[in-house]
């Protein structure tokens, strides 16, 4: 994972979270705590988040991988690792 990818993933996630959980301060979020509890995401919020990540960042998180993105830190890595090359 390159720095630029991580930067892009971070700013992309920031935008996505701003839409779905606008009151959440991503800088203050615990990278190792359960994301859905940290950001108070219910099941519909969670799928909307997955949809937005797919649409905005081009990264599809299949349902089978939901267990790998349970914290913000894990989600950031997951997305950064799979981010398509910048066009």
């Amino acid at each position: 994972m390159t720095d630029s990818k991580e930067t892009r993933a971070r700013s992309g996630l920031r935008k996505v979270f701003h839409r779905i959980a606008p009151e959440i301060d991503l800088d203050a979020i615990d990278h190792h705590a359960d994301l859905r509890e940290e950001a108070d995401l219910d099941s519909v919020d969670a799928i909307n988040l997955i949809v937005a990540i797919h649409k905005d960042l081009g990264v599809d998180i299949p349902e089978a991988d939901y267990g790998e993105v349970t914290t913000f830190g894990a989600m950031l890595r997951y997305v950064a690792d799979r981010l398509p090359e910048a066009s």
């Binding site: 949809v51 599809d60 349902e63």
Partner: peptide
């Protein structure tokens, strides 16, 4: 059902 579906196509329990 949801395994191979794109995020927008995945069915919610609700």
């Amino acid at each position: 059902t949801n395994r191979d579906r794109a995020p927008t196509e995945r069915i919610l329990q609700a």
